[in-house]
Each structure stands twice: as C-alpha cells, then as structure tokens.
Design a protein around this nucleic acid. Sequence first.
DNA 1: GCCAACGTTGGC
DNA 2: GCCAACGTTGGC
Length: 158
Amino acid sequence: MANYWLMKSEPDVYPYSQLVIDGSTHWDGVRNYQARNIMRDDMKVGDLVLYYHSNTKPPHVAAVARVSREGYPDHTSWDINGKYYDEKSSPEKPRWIMVDIEPVCELPNIISLNSIRENDRCEGMLLIRKGQRLSVQPVEEIHFDAILDMVGMAREEL
DNA sequence: GCCAACGTTGGC
DNA sequence: GCCAACGTTGGC
C-alpha cells in the first residue's frame, strides 16, 4: 500500500527543475524530528510526492516526484563546514535522516496554495492547516487525487 | 519586512 | 518538568 507525501522546497534553493536536471537528489538538511521520523519510518520506495514550492509567489505545488531510496543517514549533519552541521550527529550515531527522490512529472499548471484552500475536496489537508509548517508531510490518497484532478490528471497516468 | 505559529534550548 | 527566551518557517 503506497503512501503519499508532500515535500517543501524553496525554488531559490532547489526548484523542481533542478531535480529534473539532477535525475535524483538526496533530501538533506531536514532538522525537524517529526519530518525525520517520517523519512526514517514511513517513506517507501515508489511512494509519490507532491513537490511544493514554498517562499515564492504564489506558493504552489509544482510537480510530482517519487521516493527512490528509503531513509538513510544525512551525511551533511557531520560535515563541520556545511550549513547543516550538527555536533550531536556523527557517522557512528547519525541523528538525521534523508531519503532520495526522483522526478516523475511536472504539472501542466502550478496549483497555488490559495486554489488548494478553495477546493472543497482538499478540506482537512495538513498543508492548509493554520500554523502547520512541516516540510515533509503525509497526504491522504483522496487529497492526492484531488490535487492531480485540479490539473486534469489522474494517478494512473503518472 | 513583518509576524504568527511552532520547535528547541537551557536555567531553575 | 516547567517555561521563558530564542530561532525558524513560511505566508502575507
């Protein structure tokens, strides 16, 4: 049983177009325990991911990606010169976890946060809950399908 | 640039 | 274990 996720990235930092260029990427730098636990325990190879661009106008879902490698230690956490360094993490006792994702397809149009908010079928989504800011979050299947439907797509076509 | 919401840290 | 202070996220 596949699961569905939403991952946030700032387009200034790592837009979906870069994922297409790279072919796949390791989702490093997540330093939130809840998000880490999701990547460590719940994300499986083949799971589909809504690729969300945050901190941009308008914030939006841009594409669909797929988990291509399950949770493993985030090596940037012990790179003392990197910006994601955490002194409490080491190769022997890694504290932070990442997954790999690969591109699936760009949406024909972006789906703005506002339009998601206005879509009755998206009611209850974590993304539009007040104060919610998890950068890796679960998406229910009905919501995943509702999002795709907003651009005339269906899961079976992916 | 502002600021609300939330998470983390550390003193007690 | 509480909670004030601080830092971050991310929409607006």
